[in-house]
């Protein structure tokens, strides 16, 4: 066990855990931030996507010991009032069905638009293809990403 002082959603949070613990479980089990989801545990589905210094990463493969001073953003910290352009676009397009994968989809999309504010359809597909939606909301996700890009 070791103590880590993590910068999460703009606050410093201390946790005392096994250094190998993936951030996914640190967030969910130790920091009461369950918005980040477990889907596969092997970085194949994207449900656990968070931002590390603004980049989308799979938290199931990120040991807490590797985070250091990097700032972490989770779905809970993406905006103050659910008003991030990507969140708003998701609501406008009523994207969700079961909703389980959508936090990961939103985090991937938000990171994509930050880096590339006007992605082509192909760029959206390429970037979003690491995020599985079992309900099949892909058509709406793409429309929502394009709407958010226009904002």
């Amino acid at each position: 066990m070791a103590t880590f002082n993590l910068k999460i959603n703009g606050k410093t949070r201390a946790v005392d855990v096994d250094p190998a613990t993936p951030m996914l479980w640190v967030l969910r089990d130790h920091l009461d931030l369950p918005g980040t989801k477990y889907g596969c545990g092997i970085a194949q589905c994207g449900a656990c996507t968070i931002h590390l210094e603004g980049n989308a990463v799979r938290s199931c493969q990120l040991p807490v010991s590797a985070v250091g001073k990097a700032s972490v953003t989770t779905i809970e910290g993406l905006s103050e009032k659910a008003d991030h352009p990507v969140q708003k676009a998701w609501l406008d397009h009523d994207v969700a069905q079961c909703g389980y994968c959508q936090a990961g989809q939103i985090m991937t999309a938000a990171a994509l638009l930050k880096r590339n504010p006007n992605p082509t359809d192909e760029e959206i597909e390429a970037q979003m293809s690491g995020n599985i939606c079992r309900c099949g909301t892909y058509v709406r996700i793409k429309e929502a990403v394009k709407s958010a890009a226009r904002k």
């Binding site: 369950p34 989801k37 659910a82 969700a96 909703g99």
Partner: peptide, 23 residues
């Protein structure tokens, strides 16, 4: 008349809605 998902806001903000989130 189309109505938005009443839980849409909770979904996009990562609220604990699911069984795995229950504690």
């Amino acid at each position: 008349k189309s109505k938005k998902n009443v839980e849409g806001q909770k979904v996009v903000t990562g609220k604990p809605l699911f069984g795995l989130d229950y504690r």
